[in-house]
Design a protein around this nucleic acid. Structure first.
Lengths: 351, 351
DNA sequence: TTGGAAACCGAAACCGGTTTCGGCAAGAGA
DNA sequence: TCTCTTGCCGAAACCGGTTTCGGTTTCCAA
């Protein structure tokens, strides 16, 4: 039923190869082996080579928790999820985790995940993980403008890397997707289709990305020579419901827009609903753009024109950056950005 | 901008309290302290009490990786995500992780997460985690009928716990939600509304849950004295698209059903789409029930009648079970099930 | 009173590494 | 030729725990 079963446990047969085994095989002492593997300068290049070769051959890898007892570092990255945050990050979580795990395991690191409901609990979670040496550094998703996590980790001198930029760059490494560029491109795209009154529905203002995207939208409007009407702008819309409500308000404007740029895909789908309720056909009577690239957008009617974020790549980049940070590189050298990719589907059309 | 910053790092000031500190404070040796904390029989009840009290007072907790070097156990649970699996588990992932983390940290354990694309890579991932002692046991989501993970872990003698039941119970601990009961209740509910021709759209047959739910559906039909028509049944529908396709096929039947029971919410939403395309009003012309309790169901038009699974509770239960399993309890005592809760919304109506 | 078994704790080895320190040999400068 | 470095490695201490092994006391029965 379960197929043939391998030899059965190990029975103490095949044991892990230790540094002592290495030393024995090489005719050296374990201290020499250790220093060779850790790049100490008082080891000749010749023996270092012998050691690394032998390590390869015997497939020796130091036990991370054995070294941790002396070094304090476990070769593991920490991730603390905040649950009260709206489902915004949910759809991407799997890809994001995959990326993180990928980047970590490429260097022989692992990922330790914890979750907490409240902000206070989250700080305690960080403390507990640090206290027990369960993580050598942290990935902080969703950078916020006043971020308690950043305060804590800075104060404790613990390495971290943000997903999202931060005002106060001091000591901050980060990876981010240039959402403002996407917003600008969205406006440009719509303006190119002849739209002149364009609305904007932004995401949660407590996050760093929101002001940036607003800025990008504004820049796009200026470049296109279009007037920015505050009556056509809403914010803090991160769910479909929020988006629908925002769209209702905007469409109630005496001079409603012919297109709406959304900072979040879910909000864009909310616009679909509001439009439907008014008998407006998306892509014909009302153009909409989103941002994120959620799968639901692809299967909406019509499919949502949006900017896709590669969350897996982001995760991989973040873990790589964090590892480098933990290894001591300066945070100033550890800031990367990328762009979202425009996906022109069916939700935009000529004005 | 960031607020006042605490003392700065620790500067070596406050250090972790070690077992030696405990020994000193108690006038004992560290060996005694250790044995007291680990429940050795050669420690008097009096000193054990003194030790545990002092541990509480000094908030002493042994460093998990320090003990790991001797015991081999790290107090961490492993979770390996399979990415190629369709997005089925995605929406629940956050809650599921939260539950796992919750259950783990309640006992002072942590969660190590890894991801892999292919089946082969997944096995390697398990091996790597085991080899480096990064996990003492594993949570296996989505039990499959012939599960390579189970084979591997059984062979290696590594503790694990399944989310989902397994045919061959030997050595298997598990937690599961009784999907078959939900399917039966769904049929009963529909039969009570007067439906006599009821279709069934099942999920992925490679998973253990699918045959069970089919069985539950069949049982419900028998109990209601209704005829089971194979022409009204489809399987392997785990996405909205799959569900729509299955519904199309079923509705093409010369004697189409007036209700369809779905084993997966996403498939039920696919039924919505198929019905819409034919001008059938859900809840009036065609009744539909789902299973899972995804948020999209709540906001569908009309809201989806379904059975909600508490994935957070499931996660918490699983980690608790796994910890007990790792501590040596027999798997036979570690099998729990619960029921999904029926949520009667708007997608069912009288025949 | 004595001998033996429990009961209980200390001493020391060990786990798998890292890091400090000291010493030997070869090479360089005088 | 003799010292002084330098280069290179071994010896040993250490990290924070666990576990084995003895060695005292105390209790109890003989």
């Amino acid at each position: 039923m379960e197929g043939p079963v391998a030899p059965l446990s190990d029975g103490g047969a095949r044991k892990r190869v230790t540094i002592e085994d290495m030393a024995q095989a090489l005719g050296l002492t374990k201290s020499t082996v250790s220093r060779a593997m850790n790049g100490y300068p008082d080891i000749s290049e010749a023996t270092r080579l012998r050691v690394t070769r032998m390590a390869e051959k015997m497939s020796y890898r130091p036990l991370s928790h054995a070294q941790a007892i002396k070094t304090g570092r476990t070769r593991s990255l920490g991730l603390v999820l905040q649950l009260s945050d709206h489902d915004a990050q949910r759809p991407f979580l799997a890809e994001f985790l995959a990326g993180l795990s990928e980047g970590a395991s490429a260097e022989g690191w692992t990922l330790t995940v914890a979750a907490s409901d409240s902000h206070a609990a989250m700080i305690d979670t960080f403390r507990a993980l640090l206290r027990d040496g369960k993580a050598d550094g942290f990935v902080l998703p969703r950078a916020m403008s006043d971020d308690p996590r950043v305060r804590l980790l800075r104060a404790e001198g613990v390495p971290f890397v943000l997903f999202g930029r931060h005002k106060n760059a001091e000591g901050c490494a980060w990876f981010d997707v240039l959402g403002e560029e996407a917003m600008r491109d969205a406006v440009r795209h719509l303006a190119g289709l002849g739209h002149r009154r364009i609305g904007f529905i932004n995401g949660g203002m407590k996050y760093m990305y929101a002001p940036l995207r607003a800025e990008g939208f504004a820049a796009g409007m200026r470049e296109a020579g279009l007037e920015i009407d505050a009556g056509l702008m809403r914010q803090d819309a991160m769910t479909l419901q929020d988006g629908a409500a925002a769209a209702e308000a905007i469409l109630d404007h005496p001079a409603p827009p012919t297109a709406i740029v959304c900072a979040v895909d879910f909000a864009a789908l909310g616009v679909y609903r509001a439009a439907e309720a008014r008998g407006l056909a998306i892509g014909r009577d009302l153009s909409v753009t989103g941002y994120d690239g959620i799968p639901e957008g692809l299967h909406a009617q019509p499919p949502l024109t949006t900017f896709a974020v590669d969350n897996r790549a982001a995760g991989a980049a973040l873990s790589t950056l964090l590892i480098r940070r933990i290894r001591g590189e300066s945070p100033d050298a550890l800031r990367q950005t990328t762009r979202a990719t425009f996906i022109d589907r069916g939700s935009t059309g000529p004005a």
